[in-house]
Design a protein around this nucleic acid. Sequence first.
DNA 1: TTTATTTACTTAACCGTTTTCGTAATCACA
DNA 2: TGTGATTACGAAAACGGTTAAGTAAATAAA
Lengths: 336, 336
Amino acid sequence: MGNVTIRILARELQLSAATVSKALADSHEISQSTKKRVLEKAAALNYTPNPYASSLRRKKSKTIAVVLPEVADSFFSQAIDGIEAIAQDKGYHVLVCLTHERALKEQAILHEMLGGRADGILISSCSETTDPASILELQEKGVPVVFFDRVCEELDTAKVVTDDRNSAYKASDHLIRCGCRNIAFLTISENLSISHERIEGYKHALEERGIKFNPADIIPCTHQADDNVHLLKKMLGKKDRPDGIIASVEKLAVQVYQACRELGLNIPGDVRVVGFSNLVTASLLNPSLTTITQPAFEMGRAAATLLFKALGNKSADAAQNVLVIPSELQVRDSTS
Amino acid sequence: MGNVTIRILARELQLSAATVSKALADSHEISQSTKKRVLEKAAALNYTPNPYASSLRRKKSKTIAVVLPEVADSFFSQAIDGIEAIAQDKGYHVLVCLTHERALKEQAILHEMLGGRADGILISSCSETTDPASILELQEKGVPVVFFDRVCEELDTAKVVTDDRNSAYKASDHLIRCGCRNIAFLTISENLSISHERIEGYKHALEERGIKFNPADIIPCTHQADDNVHLLKKMLGKKDRPDGIIASVEKLAVQVYQACRELGLNIPGDVRVVGFSNLVTASLLNPSLTTITQPAFEMGRAAATLLFKALGNKSADAAQNVLVIPSELQVRDSTS
DNA sequence: TTTATTTACTTAACCGTTTTCGTAATCACA
DNA sequence: TGTGATTACGAAAACGGTTAAGTAAATAAA
């Protein structure tokens, strides 16, 4: 009943623990016949190595941590799928740590990671300001960190992003071409890299078409769905309501639909909508939603790949790569 | 640069490692003044304990594993949110292990867990047959296991499910009341507990209304979206196509919509659809989707709570609870 | 004053694997 | 036949935190 350890295995085999350990690791120092005996006995006794003993000794946890705001979001869950695919392939485990968009929680998680719980970190920052200190500490300790999607611009780490600025530009330009002149831009946080980039793209499109940018058109939203719907209804209830909306976050697009439905507003008749979204149901919505579709799965894969590349290098933070994977504008009925 | 260990901390403080350890654990054996000194020095040196050393010695990992088929699914991702909320509260970490619906992968993951990587396991089985052996082994080793949603009926573990049979009954009954007489039931696996239950509920409703059950109406689907759409189009293209469809899995409902769209079939005119689904967009689809909405977040919370209860007990598998949290039928336009 | 008790620490032995350094024994080669 | 490699294994010391057992000093009880 007491767990079968490598020493128990060794005793049964009349061997030393060292030999068994090496045999299990398929070391060249061990004869084929011994390896076979060990493997067989291990299977017979149902031996499973204690990962913590191993981690302690090797200073490797065979685990990566994914730090992100939430998982109930198509983009993030698809990204996790991509990350996990790579990790599983490399024999690594995935620790999912949710920040719930709280900077404090994020910091606490990152600080804990200093203990070596994970060999590397994938992170998509929360919407409150990310403290570069924790990240810097990790880097100093030689723990590779790769940002994805929501990156921290000031930091010199590997990053995987999509072409946020250009995507927002395309979305805005598309709306303008559709006749919109008063476009609201919904965002969840102004100190998020992706927000900056996307707002820049939006501004650029306006400028190019000679539309004056009005700071009041940048609408900061919250993480409370009902608050947002309330806010949106208020905005859309006004006489000078926008004739176009860009929802820079998946959830916000859904909330715009809800607000419009409750107000009896027609999309795209009364207001056109485009959302940054990875919803599989985008094309099935009423009306189908024009989206900027991010390559979520691919971004997850790419971030994980970058992380493992860094883990392979002795020079920990060698991979100061920035990867940009383009998003796609998919025009559907909500704008046409 | 070299990690600051408890011994280094101790040396700096002119104390023994034992004292520091106890001080950090707020042991009553240590004086207040020493505790304060230790805490301050620990903060100053930015000490972070090595979780693996601790896990090795204490035989506790402060980690739970969530084993499930995928994460890119509203039900599962919401459930994870619920699980994580509880785990974070208890100071535990969450290891997410995806089986991708492969029994072999599931077995491998569970077998690895024997090593003690996680203190407890939450699992929603994959659609291929789950091998009770791995679970039994875990239980023998005293690792508590809680099933949620996709449970293993033969096993005597704690379980959290929804009222699958009754939900399916309600969905079927609803369709019949709407006039359907030829109802197809889409499933992904026939050896899944939830499939059994749901099919039973479906049969029961038919029987009660004097409609003969036709085994051919149980449509086994795959995990390939395009395969399913193809299959569904074939089915819906026939003259004697069903006049009602129950999609017992979230993704399948979406695929029914796609198939109908491609065939130009009208929902609910040509065929009525109800789906087991937690999509936030259900009410925004075209037409809005009648759903059996499962309490995903709550189920996650409940499962985690049950697990922690078991972790609290010395008698590991004391909690052979079965919790049933009811789902809700939300009638929308796809059936009316 | 002597004896118990409490307080505040220390020592040392773990936990289970890995790995460095040996060391016999076998083999190759001049 | 002696020297150097090579092969196959073992002893023991890590890794870093925890904890049982022990101890010296201070305090309380007799």
